[in-house]
Amino acid sequence: MRTMVKLSGVEKTFNSLKVIKNLNFWVLEGEVVSLIGLSGCGKSTTLRIVANLEKTDKGTINRGFKRLAFIFQEPRLLPWRTALENIVFVLKDRISNKIERQQIALHYLKLMKLDQFKNYYPNQLSGGMKQRISVARALAINPDIILMDEPFSDLDFPLRLLLIDSLQEILKKESKTAIYVTHDIRDSLLLSDRIYILTTKPMHVKEELYISTEMKKMSNPKFLELEEHIINLLKEDSLREGENK
């Protein structure tokens, strides 16, 4: 299996505060890898570094992908374009045939069960619907890797579960590689093949966990065990942060 992303000894400083120190991790093709850590620990910055939206101060990044799609925390849809047009927007420079572009966009809207809302403007849709469009937009460009920055954090838990379920199905079916940044342990356990637990100030990998398909079920006692284990790891971090304050 080919390595899609490899970060070695990455460091990042913001206003003389070292946020990331000696960060090492890798993501293989077809894997869904979660980065879990406390809020503000630098997870999103890491994702932005992978996407080349942010520069590093030190370290190397090997990118084995050509096409990446980013699903942001907010849907980031063009308010003056309809649901369908928002997806077509990212396909314009890749597919010259207009009909083909629209068919692809519609296919992914259907996948997100939003095809009947294709002509709606974002301000006519709910938060969950908008985020589903942003997921459809990301999938539509047929990316080698999808970077997800807490895309479901603003949604209610039942809706989040539904979205995670459908996303998991699509990612597996199309064997997509994805990096999922979250502070929600359940979300990451449900979605990932591997989890990196990150410590804070400066951020680096504390532990790496492999999640089998069996473990991904909430009814499995192993799921709860793992959840507790991660909670304890993050608790340690949280306490350490509290002491430092």
Binding site: A51, A69, F70, R76, F89, V90, K92, D93
Partner: peptide, 17 residues
């Protein structure tokens, strides 16, 4: 930033964004 992350060309950005 969204348009940049999706590698959208400047002409497309001009017209649609």
């Amino acid at each position: 930033e969204m348009a940049h992350s999706f590698n959208v060309k400047i002409s497309t950005k001009l017209y649609h964004l």
